[in-house]
Amino acid sequence: MHTALYAATRTLRAVFVVWAAFTLTFVALRLLPGDPVALMLSGRGGFAELTAQQVAQARTELGLDRPLIVQYGSALADALHGDLGASLQTGQPVSRMIADALLPTFQVGTLALLLALMLGTLLGVAANLTASPLLRQLLRSLPSVAVSLPSFWVGLVLIQFLSFRWHLFPSLGDSGFDSVILPACTMAIPGAALVAQVLGKSLHTTLQEPYADTVRATGAGRVRLLFGHGLRNAAIPAATVAGMLVGSLIGGAVVVETVFSRPGMGRITQSAVSAQDLPVVQGVVVVAALAFAVVNLLIDLLYPVLDPRIRATGRLVTT
């Protein structure tokens, strides 16, 4: 009962967040100083001289002469039907562009997510399991070094060595699974570092709580304590970071796809921002927010499984 209510409130919240992201980008982009019509016309036909009449006509065509609230209403209604408008650069429907770009980004992103989770968990656990202080110090500082590396550089270094020098992987473009690996690794490194840091820290914290001493006092060893008790307790704060991880992957896609000249959501975004192509930017943000909201919803639904205290009250225990 409580769990069902909890799930319902969390789902409502996810819907609210996507709607709010749509509204936020709508407002942000309509309030910008540039005139979208001038941009659009100049985008299509070069820097031609525009007559006032041409501009007015274009405004009417796009419905920009209507009051802002009416524009917002019809944009929202369209969005609900899957219509996110047309690109100012190319005139193509935004939803088509996104649909085409989704698959390559999804491939890289999923692989990167798996890599990041596996590598990060491994590092975080290993740092708390080892009895050697030197090794522990090393395993702890590795993630903090990794988060300091600019991801564009990580990608460039991988290309330099694995493609140019050793010819192991294709350097650029989209040509089958081989071409997914390097971008996925580039995206996974900061993510893995994030997971390792948060999981490592929360494991460290939870193993110092009084209950851990109770377990130790029963004669249980490190391994039993860590896997039988620590991991489950540490997973609760660490699960939150998995949501952040997906967010950072979505953002990272922009940089990584640019570095590897891959098609995908990131590339669309990169060129749309340069060209101030508002409908495309808005479409990307809404889709990203949707993906982000779904992931966070899944994590929220995971909490009651991890933490019996939430099952009882339907509330997150915040300490």
């Binding site: 709580e209 209950y211 001493d213 109770t214 006092a217 008790h229 489950r232 307790n233 019996p308 205290r309």
Partner: peptide
């Protein structure tokens, strides 16, 4: 040797 700890509020694993 068995240990009976001080604070029962925090001395049990909350998720088991």
């Amino acid at each position: 040797i068995g240990l009976i700890p001080q604070d029962p509020g925090v001395s049990l694993d909350p998720v088991k």
